[in-house]
Design a protein around this nucleic acid. Structure first.
Lengths: 357, 357
DNA sequence: TTAGCAAATGCAATCGATTGCGCTAATATA
DNA sequence: TATATTAGCGCAATCGATTGCATTTGCTAA
């Protein structure tokens, strides 16, 4: 018969005894001869546990490589320490930078982040809200999709008392805490800049008027015209999907209608690139004949020929503000609190596409 | 004394009795007069529960708006139904498309996805792995960061038997299932294309040789030269960070060294844009004097002047393949299974920057 | 010496879902 | 008719951490 391997009788270090089963507070408890309650309290730095015991627990925990099971904790006190983020698409410098800002704050507070994309589809947004609720997130941060014109799906969130924060793409139809940039001011400055450069017939590319940012950008554009004694011409405002092809279409539309225009201020960088392409195609000189300003400071705006003026939205700031606001909600009773609307200032970045002088 | 509020004795519909506390299987059980066990089994379609009961349970669940608590379930069977994804940065069309591919498959199987960015920082990657383990994800999918030259942090994952899949940016130092594109072939085709267009002194922009994709792209480039009777010239290979500035620097480097070159095949779109800018700055004609081909088909490559040839990596395919591979691992015993390495073919997209004829 | 008190820890229930085992009643087989 | 079998469901333990309340121990004050 096989000889059994030598097995010492005396106490074997715990670490060596176990194979690789999961290690719980009970193991720590057994190790140092207390109960799981004490271990739990020690790990949570409960005042009624002696310093001696705490040290023993901490040492033992480290020794046997204990990792808390946050699922068990989540079940117990009903908090998952997860927060859900919904953005139209993460494939945008602006949004991914916001997410980064949020992530950093969240991780510092021991929260994990679940990122979801709505792809600007209403149905996907609804489904995602449901999925996040399903995953029992402790709170949700959203930038609305372009096609979201109904907001009932947020009622479930509100009713459950789950903290909800909107950032950038928000709505006034819902009374929700939010962080946005000063779209009005940025648009005003962009338009004002074009006027300063001597452009007089400035077109504006915009999107769905249901979305606050587009309303605001239009408002800033109009006000800048007004303040400079220029008549607002509604035929110079073109609505599109704000993608590359949308910008191309809008430009052709302006050209076809023989609308005299010498500049375009677009509420999106993608659309302004579309405009740039169309105009170059027919040999319009940028910025001599037509000036262009976009919005978002997407990286590619520095790659085009000529480089594009745009508005930098300070995404990381927005992310941080939104996260700060969010964690205030998490940590304090939200009843009877007024809705908070933070506004972050943006930066106009002047590049070649709008500089005649 | 206060009069107690009127409380009817007769049966009140459950829905109206409760306020808004959480609804559990016990509530369903009480509603239809069975135990929680039965409800649980009914909901999970257990064969030993009669169809009648199942229907009653399902109806009651719907009626009182029951939502399963996946945290409790997770605790019970030790599976969180969460999968972690780590990418260098989500702010890239390629990666966000991959993520989309993964997400779609995951959601279909009732898994949630946690996306994290390593920002190409080794420390952040290590921390993220730990965070995901901490969150008790059921599996992890990773595209390695550029600065990751040590892989011990994956051992914890492997040892716990948690499914791990690498995609795109992988390594051979670890025996892990992976999905990549055919970098070798793509590079070969790109170089071959440049040769066909009559370019003879083709430079190559690359990055850390520790990363498999860069090795492979270099290999493809070399082989194409060889097969066409061109001598490989190591001084034409420049290593950089593969960002815009890296591409600029590499280009200046080639120019300064007075290296005669008439084309560049870059392993990154960002770097090729940098090259484009530098060359245009000194009035080099593209593609007449120098031909350019990038890699990744980032959207902006279609926006530049001239538009850039590049390699489309079919990100969604990669995402889907990776997810498929991953869920095979989740669902089957991985012991004694050989390592799987899937390779997806890519597409060379020929645009203006490399077309002389 | 003893009630009184505080500090330190243990006991046991709890969070919600799952599941092995056991029980009952009905149907089948001998 | 008596025993097997099976369908259908309940009981109670379990996952790991937390926490209100009870208990123990040591010490102080009366």
């Amino acid at each position: 018969m096989d000889k059994k391997p030598f097995r010492p009788i005396f106490c074997v270090p715990y670490k060596l005894m176990r194979k690789k089963e999961k290690i719980t507070i009970h193991d720590i408890a057994m190790e140092i001869g207390v109960t799981a309650s004490t271990v739990s309290r020690a790990l949570n730095n409960h005042p009624r546990i002696s310093e001696t015991t705490k040290k023993m627990v901490l040492d033992a925990a480290k020794a046997i490589n204990y990792k808390p099971n946050r699922i068990a904790a989540a079940l117990r006190h009903g908090k998952s320490k997860l927060i859900g983020i919904i953005v139209p698409t993460i494939n945008r410098n602006f949004f991914s930078s916001i997410v980064r800002g949020i992530e950093e704050q969240a991780n510092a507070l021991d929260y994990k982040v679940m990122i979801s994309q709505s792809y600007d589809e209403y149905e996907k947004e609804v489904a995602t809200i449901e999925a996040l609720l399903d995953a029992r997130v402790d709170g949700i941060m959203v930038s609305l999709g372009k096609n979201t014109h109904s907001f009932e799906h947020f009622n479930a969130v509100l009713q459950k008392g789950i903290p909800l924060v909107f950032f950038d793409r928000t709505t006034d139809e819902l009374n929700v805490n939010q962080v946005t940039i000063n779209d009005y001011l940025s648009a005003y400055q962009a338009t004002h800049h074009l006027l300063e450069q001597g452009y007089r017939h400035i077109a504006h590319f915009t999107s769905h008027m249901k979305i606050r940012i587009y309303q605001e950008r239009l408002r800033g554009y109009k006000q800048a015209l007004l303040d400079n004694g220029i008549n607002f011409d509604p035929t110079l405002v073109v609505e599109s999907n704000m993608q590359l092809d949308g910008g191309q279409k809008s430009t052709r539309q302006l050209l076809d209608k023989n609308q005299g225009f010498d500049a375009i201020f677009s509420a999106s960088d993608y659309a302004i690139v579309g405009a740039l392409q169309e105009l170059k195609r027919i040999n319009v000189k940028i910025p001599q004949e037509v000036g262009l300003v976009g919005f978002s400071n997407e990286p590619f705006t520095a790659f085009t020929e000529p480089t594009l003026s745009t508005v930098d939205q300070k995404a990381v700031s927005i992310g941080k503000s939104a996260a700060t606001l969010f964690f205030e909600m998490i940590n304090t009773d939200q009843k009877n609190k007024p809705t908070v609307k933070k506004v972050v200032d943006a930066n106009l970045i002047i590049r070649a596409s709008s500089q005649r002088f």
